[in-house]
Design a binder for these strands. Structure first.
Lengths: 83, 83
DNA sequence: TTCGTATATGGTGCTTAGATCATATTATCA
DNA sequence: TGATAATATGATCTAAGCACCATATACGAA
């Protein structure tokens, strides 16, 4: 799955989905990533203001990756998941 | 160009390249994005700890987009730019 | 080299993220 | 339904981002 991320809410969705897909609890992800469970909860719920480093920690722990590209004006390929 | 972003330095590179590609100065990008020139300078140089919202502002102003996907273990396609 | 611009650096002050602990709320399941 | 696990909420405190102003430095052109 590919998540287009423009807002903190988008990011929260992506994180939560990836975590669930791996059958991890927030607490488990917390110990894997070094990010507190309470913080993960807030991030998954899209409460903005998160620090980049925290996101990187979660992304890495969840085996995800972030890419930055030019905005695709081309035809949508249906692979994207935007909330 | 596609930038794989795992660190603040990666992000800085992506931002700077995109800005240069559009022939914008930091000051111009600042007024377009609402992020101060001084802050842009720091971000482009990879000084970590940046807030997500700030990144979103810059990404939007530069017509870039962020996507989150599963880590590609497949064959590299040569399109990525990792620093 | 000198002028003008672009970028970096540095300080102040307000605001807030996140670590940490405690607890409330919400699933989940035998 | 009651126990147990998962998630959310809330408070405190410290570290740090960023707006903001001033200035230093690097860079390009003439």
């Amino acid at each position: 799955m590919k998540h287009l991320v423009r807002t903190s809410k988008n990011l929260g969705h992506a994180i939560r989905q990836a975590r669930k897909a791996k059958n991890l609890t927030q607490k488990e992800l917390a110990s894997m990533s070094g990010v507190w469970q309470e913080t993960i909860s807030k991030i998954e719920n899209g409460s903005g203001g998160t620090k980049l480093e925290t996101v990187f920690d979660l992304i890495a722990a969840l085996d995800l990756e972030i890419t930055v590209t030019e905005r695709s004006k081309g035809a949508p390929d249906g692979l994207e998941d935007i909330f």
